[in-house]
Design a protein around this nucleic acid. Structure first.
Lengths: 261, 261
DNA sequence: CGGTATTTTGAGTATCGTCAAGGCCAGTGG
DNA sequence: CCACTGGCCTTGACGATACTCAAAATACCG
């Protein structure tokens, strides 16, 4: 079923873009045009949303769920270079085909706007253009965050970095942590995918999880659900440079230090 | 001396931006305005060009030399997240302060355009805006290339990937390789920096260099100058996914395969 | 020519990758 | 309702690789 849905995305419904606070600065008339162009579509887990080498026909905004950007190698192995969460955009305006596939890591809903009309709108609205540009800058920062995480020689440290970045993405989690409490993080991808993302093997990922649990940093509730018990220890394990470098993350740790002792 | 020059860049000279083929599609009148705003400045090796946390006052284009983007950690260690070569742009339009320092890895000349007037020009010229946008997309691809290189578990493979990306950046080198010949690549950063970039230690980098020399992939002329003897073997070592994924690189290898046997 | 920074080499230890087997969970079919 | 099956996660053992510490060799600069 999911394979058959690849080329014809299912369940097109109108989409309320006004909910996206990212788009707050866009003038109402442009926003109206955007909404008329935009359809929300649901994708099942494991379905491919965009293929590497095929020009993006849509500019997309993730409404909910998690997407993964990946390169599928000749031998069938997959290499993940990033994850996309709610609010993230993708689709390369003005440019040629992408180098990566986009797949739904979980069931996901996506706002899709046909590319050509979107580009036309981009030229009409400097505000919208700015948002796209700033969004790209954020993506770049995010990719460089990943570089720092991956540059860490120890797998356990890389996993710590991953967990922190996952937490930083989620405002809700941030609030709970800064209240001095613990927070549960849902890990949206399998161990295999996580291994690809961290540049290692499944077994090492598993061992790293349990090593972090051993030191009291985390508590493994389910394979895909961990509780952050000591965010600071986790940050220390990740190398601390990560925390000092990521604004959202350092804010969380800062608050946690003040509130939770 | 070099420390003193940090805040007041030396030797401001007018700058011919028409030479940048990237800017070919910009209308002449806009280009004139750009050139009147732009001054070229020379930076000595090791001098800081932009500080993390300080908003960029200039949009910059590298004329020659190599720059490194890095995070300086609390304990003084430095972590490199990318290199900038001739033609590369940096400076975040519309956005807040950057998370990384920019330092000259070699002596370098840089075109600097004051940010506010540049942003004004950006709103006047959709062509210029597009160029900035597409440039960002390229940076993003480049960062993701790095992710794939860094995800490789073996240091020797990461070094192979680094050398190939270095070669792919340099059109001259590409041409020589595609003629079936060998090509010498100047490594613009020290072993320590390279170790930081590859997420490992100096000793391992050194060993990896000599391991690649042992297998005949490269020839070490000087510590900072290696000759690529077998680009294909290097690509195989780097994992091949890198080559298939990077357009410039695969083109070079393609030509080399056809021309040099 | 001497002093310094960088690179290289060596030995020992920790970590990770590989191969193999076992356990847990959900979905399937009796 | 229960046994079976397949996918995913975990654990164990062993060899390969990389990190740490220490020291020597080389290149660079005045």
């Amino acid at each position: 079923m999911s394979r058959a849905e690849r080329r014809k995305p299912p369940r097109a419904t109108p989409c309320k873009l006004t909910a996206q606070k990212k788009l707050a600065s866009v003038p109402p008339d442009i926003l109206d045009e955007l909404e008329s162009l935009c359809t929300a579509r649901a994708f099942e887990r494991m379905t491919t949303i965009a293929h590497a080498g095929e020009e993006h026909a849509y500019l997309c905004v993730v409404r909910n769920g998690v997407l993964r950007m990946q390169k599928t190698l000749a031998d069938g192995r997959q290499h993940i270079v990033g994850l996309l969460f709610a609010g993230d955009m993708f689709g390369r305006v003005y440019d040629g085909p992408p180098a990566f596939d986009i797949e739904a890591a979980t069931d996901a809903e996506i706002c899709m706007i046909p590319m050509r009309p979107f580009e036309a709108l981009l030229q009409k609205s400097p505000e919208l253009d700015r948002i796209v540009l700033i969004n790209l800058l954020r993506d770049l920062d995010s990719a460089r965050d990943w570089l720092i995480v991956l540059a860490n020689p120890r797998i356990m440290s890389r996993l710590a970095g991953f967990l922190l970045m996952l937490t930083a993405r989620d405002e809700e989690a941030g609030r709970q942590l800064s209240a001095g409490g613990t927070v549960s993080v849902l890990i949206p991808i399998s161990r295999v995918d996580l291994a690809h993302l961290l540049g290692t093997r499944v077994e090492s990922v598993s061992r790293a999880f349990h090593a972090l649990a051993e030191t009291g940093c985390i508590d493994i509730r389910r394979p895909d659900l961990v509780e952050i018990r000591d965010a600071e220890a986790l940050a220390a394990e990740a190398g601390d440079d990560l925390a000092s470098q990521n604004a959202a993350l350092s804010e969380i740790l800062e608050k946690g230090r003040a509130g939770g002792g």
